[in-house]
Design a protein around this nucleic acid. Structure first.
Length: 184
DNA sequence: CCACGGATCAGCT
DNA sequence: GCTGATCCGTGGA
């Protein structure tokens, strides 16, 4: 298997976020895999990044962000959608990468062009809070074979206008021109 | 205790 | 472009 090792996540979110592009997110339910290619991510750097949930300090909701890298941080937003993050390094830094859009590869029959939609399509909810991404029901793999080349574009993160000067940081990473992005 | 707003989305104007 | 859906963490009284 080509599951990404813990060491992959043990770097700054700013480095991990673009490298997750093109990787395959694999959600297994009752032995059936739903696979999507990651095409859009955002880096949340931890304090003092005013857009990161961890900027308010350690709480029950954000506790997994303060732990070791390579685990899932799932949260409920607007009372109805879930969002999936990968905790990044170094441990205790409270940084993470938000997965914002997937290109369907197999087993997916709902839209995945947005962070809330991809969690609905892959049945990702709070039961996966703190899940170890190095195996099990939710993991990330490097696809086999020679990868198709792509261009990485950067832009400001979506929906964080409240974060003052951090709102404009180019911490959103996309596979340029991919049709499954959450927005242009 | 109560009020507020959010790393979203669909539907309507 | 604007609004409602729907819940919980957070902060103030």
């Amino acid at each position: 298997m080509d599951i990404l090792p813990k060491s992959f996540y043990d770097r700054n979110a700013k480095e991990v976020a673009p490298e997750l592009l093109g990787m395959h997110l694999v959600r297994t339910i009752d032995g059936v895999a739903r696979i999507g290619r990651i095409v859009e991510t955002e880096a949340y750097l931890g304090p003092p990044d005013l857009a990161a949930h961890s900027t308010k300090g350690l709480t029950k909701r954000t506790s997994v962000m303060y732990g070791p890298p390579g685990y899932a941080y799932v949260y409920l937003i607007y009372g109805m959608y879930h969002c999936l993050n990968m905790v990044t390094g170094p441990g205790g830094h409270a940084s993470a990468v938000l997965v914002r859009a997937l290109e369907p590869i197999s087993g997916i029959d709902e839209a995945t062009n947005g962070p809330g939609k991809l969690c609905r399509a892959l049945k990702i909810d709070l039961r996966l809070y703190g899940h170890d991404l190095s195996g099990g029901e939710l993991t990330v793999m490097r696809p086999k074979g020679r990868p198709e080349p792509f261009t990485i574009a950067t832009s400001p993160r979506i929906g964080v206008d409240y974060a003052k000067e951090w709102a404009l940081e180019p911490l959103r990473f996309t596979i340029a021109g991919n049709p499954y992005l959450s927005r242009r």
